[in-house]
Design a protein around this nucleic acid. Sequence first.
RNA 1: GGGCGAAUAGCUCAGCUGGUCAGAGCAUCCGGUUUACACCCGGAAGGUCGGGGGUUCGAGCCCCUCUUCGCCCA
Length: 866
Amino acid sequence: MTSETFGVPEKPVLEGLEATWSARWAEQGTYAFDRSRSREEIFSIDTPPPTVSGSLHVGHVFSYTHTDLIARYQRMRGKEVFYPMGWDDNGLPTERRVQNFFGVRCDPTLPYEAGYTPPAEPDAKRQVPISRRNFIELCNQLVEEDEKVFEQLWRTLGLSVDWSQQYTTIGDESQVVSQRAFLRNVARGEAYQQDAPTLWDVTYQTAVAQAELEAREYPGAYHRVAFHGPGADGEAAQVFIETTRPELIGACVALIAHPDDERYQPLFGTTVTSPLFGVEIPVVAHTAAEPDKGSGIVMCCTFGDLTDVIWWRELQLANRTIIGRDGRILPDVPKWITEPSGVELYATLAGKTTFTARELMVAALKESGDLDGDPKPTQRMANFYERGDKPLEIVSTRQWYIANGGRSADLRAELIARGDEIEWVPTYMQSRLTNWIGGLNGDWLVSRQRFFGIPFPVWYRLDAAGEPVYDDPILADEASLPVDPASQAPPGFDDSQRGEPGGFMADPDVLDTWATSSLSPQIVCGWERDPELFAKTFPMDLRPQGHDIIRTWLFSTIVRSHLEHGSVPWTHTALSGFVVDPDRKKMSKSKGNVVVPDEILTSYGADAVRWRAAGARPGADSPFDEAQMKVGRRLAMKVLNASKFVLAPEEQYGLGADAAHLDASLVTEPIDLAMLTRLRGVVDEATVAFDAYDYAAALEVTEKFFWDFCDDYLELVKERARRDDAGGASAKSAFVLALSVQLRLLAPFLPYVTEEVWSWWQEGSIHRAAWPVNATDLTTPEQDPGVLAAAARVLADIRGAKSVAKVSQKTEIGTLTVTATADALKLLALAFDDVRAAGRVTATPTLTPDESTDGFAVEAVPLPTS
RNA sequence: GGGCGAAUAGCUCAGCUGGUCAGAGCAUCCGGUUUACACCCGGAAGGUCGGGGGUUCGAGCCCCUCUUCGCCCA
């Protein structure tokens, strides 16, 4: 084999490696999944589908790199890696992006318009209403373009994904899986519909699940308001409550105080009347009332907050809804308000926003004298939908739920136990799941009043009056999935009966996006579609994800798998931290501190960016620091240059070593053997670290060795390596043996530069090569690594002497005295010729044994330069 | 208020079950045009390991407590 076949470039560069090799990998199917392998040989990864309507930032780049490190390691260990990529295009983020991008909005009442073209100059403020089908077409069009951009970025980054295995959360396969899983939940009684108080976002006009809540500070004011009771002797007595929401007085159903609160004990069981409306209100006791808050007695409404819901449920209070889904006061005067003045007041509130209604109420309370003092401003915690900017209202609506343990202690215990079956990286993250499950207080609300999502495979019969019969839904047949009930008629009906009395109507809602992504293992593994694949990949081996979505994605995936399969969805989960800006603040678009991945990939190269990502340990947040990328780039560059030096022919000033030198029997020099002995330790450590998903530690130990290899060993031995004798052969063989092992150890981190170098002298892709194993890759005899350490130590002191003398490192050493213990000197002697050559020691050195010395004492005197 | 995590050189972090554990890289400073590499090489300086207690022959490492920061949940 001559060097012409492969060839080492004169001046290797990093530029262009991404384009060259990502194309080659695609062409040669380097990362293609071979499904003929057995379950034991397969490692399956439940990749997080990124939200395509968002933009990728450097945090994504880091966490996807972390997964890829594991994928590449497992592949080199001989596993067939099942590594698909998904795109999360389902749901509200896409709707919002389509609205802004095209300047349209969905109006489900409009008819479909074939060949519709959106406005040429989109105006986000004047969105053109279009039909649901047109809207969805635009969603599909946009996500397709977004997904191409994402794929290109992932390919450049070098993710070893099998690109033939892609899915989207809105795609047909996801629809089939989501609908089928839902139908089975219904059949087993795990999914049900209920008319119940629901957290409602008035902006997006949709129900919101507990997991999507976010508590935020919200400015408000305490209003001290009088309710009226009969005094002891028939005189009117006043009971003061403090509320931040006086507009809800008309929805008041009870006043509640703590049972031990002596101030209010006489009132329990009696009634008072509400101010302005004169409605009779019971006074009751409940332990959730806080005596030291405000006046200690609180007004319970339909519904001001989640505590009101608890009271409503536990105390069986009346339902007095006055706020509609649009967040405005309902138009009709409620039947419980009968006082003429109350009716009149209500009429002025009807149709107003809660904000306006509050102002009107405050004015009326002031006038009637029921407001005590001025409102006291406060910051209260209010629940928000995580994407919304108005506090959530609680309205009564009919929604679909899936059991998640929120209403069953047994199920909670089972789900917590599933968490125990999973290996967590890092382990402490498990407590976040356990705590979350423990704190659940309601089932999982899965219906959303949105458009771009997977529809419920459900219709409702219409009775003779045209009213839907919700108790007896018509469910789609599994064989007919995916189904769109809005355009398809249920079994036994035809479309002319849609909306007619005696006919049917479609369930108008779509499934929560988490209801689909919670099935990602079922989607990618081919549940019910490809039983052979499913058996070989499920339960999956690894779920990588961010720690911020443990309560949503991780938890809901466990729920679905537990309910459907009675198993965990995967055996391991690895949680990535965030990339934070240098001030340790989370990166977000609104703060303007987002680092765009393309820029750093272009400036430093994929290998350098991956190197930096690998330095962030699992679960730990990592501040972004561009200076760090330079270090990764330097490592990649060093790999190129050191490899070139070893492999290039002599006419290129290389050592001319090649694959033919991969012969352990040629390595005879003690220092060469010592270096390889140390490398064996590195292989062991890196392997142990990777097995524990600690890629950062694997990189650290490998990198440390590599720099020492370059700076000390290579420098010590390179003169001898040029010789044409046994000593030269020993060095060349040691070089290529060490290079082969190190390239493979670095391959998961630096896939481009290691592949490039591998191609100079080896057949096939390094990424399909075997992870180094000492028993086969490093079979040289054991040698005390102290030989190398001693030589490196003395060489460092010689360099130091030249540095202090401010002379060139080329300067010859005239006097050299080394003092150390006899044993240490013995080790040094085994490599002393190399030390003398590397240090340019021309004079005869003096070696002085001294058992009292610790380490080496070196005195080196450079010769004066002429 | 509860849970989890973190606090080690100017910066980013290693320091595994207590005994060469006071380290690395970056930045800084000094020096070197060295036929692998100026996208380089060598060298130096830098910290009473957040504060206070305790356990121990011995503590960044274990226990208690306080302070600060981050995330999650109330």
